[in-house]
């Protein structure tokens, strides 16, 4: 034991010295080259190209109609890491830091007051926690869910629709509840499976298989693990409805429509407020009325004209409030 301990001691002495050396060599952070453009950073829990939650925000910032230098820290589902990244961006003097995850709220409440000149944008959340340099956003995901549900009920011949969800929480519930409402209004039976995980693709796939066994001939689902369920839809030639981002690329012939989050609508408003000196303090809802929620139809799927008309009627209804 003694000898082992001596080895361990040396190991740490050496590694410690190494660490000190490297720190000593290190200089200051590189501040991003602003060059007049607005600097924006996104901190998000999943991959920036996840075809779901995170990608919707990256696409939105890229769609903004102004000159922007964007940096991204993604895959930080661990709140501590996200907090470090948020603080780091603020320290670097980034103008606008988007904390794209509900779970980051508590960290933001600590960080935001230390950087009064920085605008923090946080969601999905319905309030700004009383912070005057934080804007909050959340989607009325049930609206698109409803529209998708109306269409699903109309194209289903068996009258049974399967839904694959992660855990019964957050905006997945909003979307799924909206969907169920829309589909049941159209006379369909909706079976909902929450697999218990945002990441388990295999379980999502088998959940979809189980729905098909039980006569479901239309499927939908929410969160990033649905890629597994879409695969099942493809092999069984069953139509799919997407949400969060446009999922047509997953199944070009079978995705009927996707509810897409166009965060740029509310981001634009927030940045305009920032230009006029308001750094935060307001909450925004993304909905059909303000054009933030858009049902994007897939031209590769031949949707009957009357179903499309019904969908557009539902959209009009939701847009009117």
């Amino acid at each position: 034991m003694k000898t082992k301990m001596r080895f361990t001691a040396r190991l740490f002495a050496v590694l410690g010295a190494f660490a000190l050396l490297a720190t000593a060599c290190g200089g200051d952070d590189d501040t991003p080259e602003a060059g007049g453009a607005l600097t924006v950073a996104i901190v998000a829990p999943s991959a920036s190209d996840d075809l779901a939650f995170t990608q919707s925000m990256v696409d939105a910032v890229n769609a903004l109609d102004r000159e922007i230098t964007l940096s991204i820290t993604d895959g930080t589902f661990i709140v501590e890491e996200a907090a470090a990244a948020i603080r780091g961006y603020a320290e670097d003097g980034i103008n606008v830091v988007i904390a794209h995850g509900t779970q980051y709220g508590a960290s933001l409440a600590e960080i935001a007051p230390d950087f009064p000149d920085t605008t923090f944008i946080w969601g999905t959340a319905t309030d700004t926690q009383g912070l005057d340099n934080v804007f909050a956003y959340h989607p009325a995901a049930d609206q698109g869910g409803y529209v998708n549900g109306v269409m699903a009920a109309a194209i289903s011949t068996t009258g049974v629709i399967g839904v694959v969800g992660p855990i019964e929480a957050g905006d997945a519930v909003a979307y799924i509840n909206g969907f169920v409402e829309g589909a049941e209004a159209g006379g369909a039976t909706v079976n909902v499976t929450y697999t218990g995980s945002f990441g388990d693709v295999a379980l999502a796939a088998e959940a979809a298989e189980a729905h098909i066994t039980n006569n479901a001939d239309v499927l939908t689902g929410s969160a990033q693990m649905v890629v597994g369920a879409v695969g099942v839809a493809v092999s069984n030639d069953v139509p799919w409805f997407g949400t969060q981002a446009n999922q047509t690329s997953l199944a070009p012939n079978l995705v009927v429509a996707s509810q897409v989050y166009h965060w740029e609508v509310v981001l634009e408003e927030m940045l305009a407020l920032r230009d006029s000196g308001t750094k935060g303090g307001q909450a925004f809802e993304l909905n059909m009325a303000n054009g933030g929620l858009v049902i994007e139809f897939n031209d590769g799927y031949s949707l009957p004209a009357d179903v499309k008309a019904a969908a557009e009627a539902a959209i009009a209804e939701k847009s009117a409030g």
Partner: peptide, 19 residues
Amino acid sequence: GSQGQRMVTDGSAAGFTAS
């Protein structure tokens, strides 16, 4: 000890424990 002073889950263990 966290800034959040609350428990929140993202559905996975690692989301809370950071592995």
